[in-house]
Computed example of a mutant assay.
Amino acid sequence: MIAAYAARIDPENPLAGLELGEVPEPSVPYGWTTVRLRSASVNHHDLWSLRGVGLSAGSLPKILGCDGAGEDAEGNPVVLHSVVGESGHGIEPDEERSMLSERYPGTFAQRIAVPRWNLLPMPPQLTFEEAACLPGAWLTAYRMLFTNAELSPGDTVLVQGAGGGVATAAVVLGSAAGFRVFVTSRDDVKRKRALGLGAEAAFEVGARLPQRVDAVLETVGAATWSHSVRALKNGGRLVISGATSGPNPPLGELQHIFYRELRIVGSTLGTRKELSALLDFCVAKGVRPVVDSVFPLHRIHRAFERMERGDLFGKIVLTIP
């Protein structure tokens, strides 16, 4: 079968290690099944894997890709939960959780083997391309908003860095849930598009907000950290799921954190239960993932180049022949 995989690790030039070619069919352990993939979405996690973060040279070659949608062995449309090992659903009952493409092959392939437990029915209202966006960025945004930010309708939330997959998901989901969503971006076009997705207001990065907010969703990291801390109300929550601009902010802002009793909450992906709830939410509210662009699998290098440049708005999706 055809797949895209990490053949080499190169921290300085990660795309040099990305290859497309024939690979063996997946082996299927007891309790697992196969999925014929139709679409998969591209994540920064894939780029970090090519740099050697969470992926060692000794584990190569490794099929990349965390998110996907396709058809199960009976031909039913399904969405894949990206985490293997949750609630004991792995090969070993006590194995640590891992994302697809870390310990096990990922979704940039025509077929994949996963635990049956990891499959959820795909709602007929969604396309394969839309469904493939949900298990990663959209599930991350869902958990940040509804589990870790502890928001209620009418509460205010600042989303840093409008344009990325998690950020666009947070704007759509947050506005659909009745939150007052503020966003930041250096790009005027992205700010305007965020308003079109339901954001109440959009600002330049670092700009003074009209009021302090109940929560901040932070995926940018060092470049926006100080602004995120200072934007919060006393007792507010700063929920972090990424650091695309770097993990080490120049200012720790510790005096603001302890004096104003702010809460810093880490957030990673989400559970199978939360993915099921996200699917239901999308159907009930009529919201759909924001797709930046769609590439066939054989043009995966173009897709990665676009993600690496950062000039996207929403998710990049691959169609798999």
Rank of each mutant, 00 (worst) to 15 (best):
I300E: 00
L145T: 10
R309S: 14
W225E: 03
E12T: 13
H298P: 02
R103A: 06
D292A: 12
S175T: 11
V83M: 12
V291Y: 04
A132S: 15
F128P: 00
P61Y: 01
N234D: 15
L60E: 07
H45V: 15
I264K: 05
G70F: 08
L15M: 14
I264E: 09
A141P: 00
V287T: 14
G196M: 04
R143I: 06
E274V: 11
R8F: 08
R272K: 15
S27R: 14
C66W: 04
N248H: 13
H81P: 05
E261Y: 01
A303Q: 01
G174F: 07
G52L: 13
S39L: 02
T127R: 00
P29K: 00
E305I: 03
P250Q: 12
A69M: 06
E130C: 06
P61M: 02
D72E: 08
R8H: 13
V283R: 13
V35M: 11
T268K: 08
K273H: 13
V28R: 15
L251T: 05
R299E: 15
P289L: 14
G310N: 03
G154K: 07
I320K: 05
I2D: 07
G88Y: 01
P210E: 09
I2N: 13
P24S: 15
L254Q: 05
H298I: 00
L209Q: 03
N76G: 05
I320P: 03
E308W: 12
V78G: 10
V53G: 00
L126E: 09
P24R: 11
S82P: 15
I63L: 03
M122I: 10
V83R: 07
G164H: 09
A73Q: 13
L126C: 13
F203Q: 09
M1P: 08
L262K: 10
E218Y: 00
F258P: 00
E200T: 14
F295D: 01
F128T: 02
R186Y: 01
G88F: 03
L297Y: 01
R180F: 04
V189C: 03
W48H: 12
A176T: 08
V84Q: 05
R237I: 11
D10Y: 11
V78I: 13
V157R: 05
E274T: 11
E305R: 14
V42S: 01
R143T: 15
T271V: 10
E25T: 12
R111M: 14
L20D: 00
L139A: 12
M99V: 11
L262Y: 05
A4Y: 00
S49N: 11
R260G: 04
R8M: 08
G314Q: 09
L126W: 10
A176D: 08
A243M: 12
P250H: 10
L173T: 09
L197Q: 03
A109T: 05
P14F: 13
L15E: 13
A40C: 01
P93G: 02
Q160M: 07
L37F: 08
I63S: 02
R263C: 03
R302C: 04
A222F: 06
D72I: 10
G154Y: 09
V42E: 01
T34M: 13
V84I: 15
A73C: 02
R208T: 15
R193F: 00
S241P: 02
A215Y: 00
E305Y: 01
T271I: 08
T156F: 05
L119M: 12
V78N: 12
G206V: 09
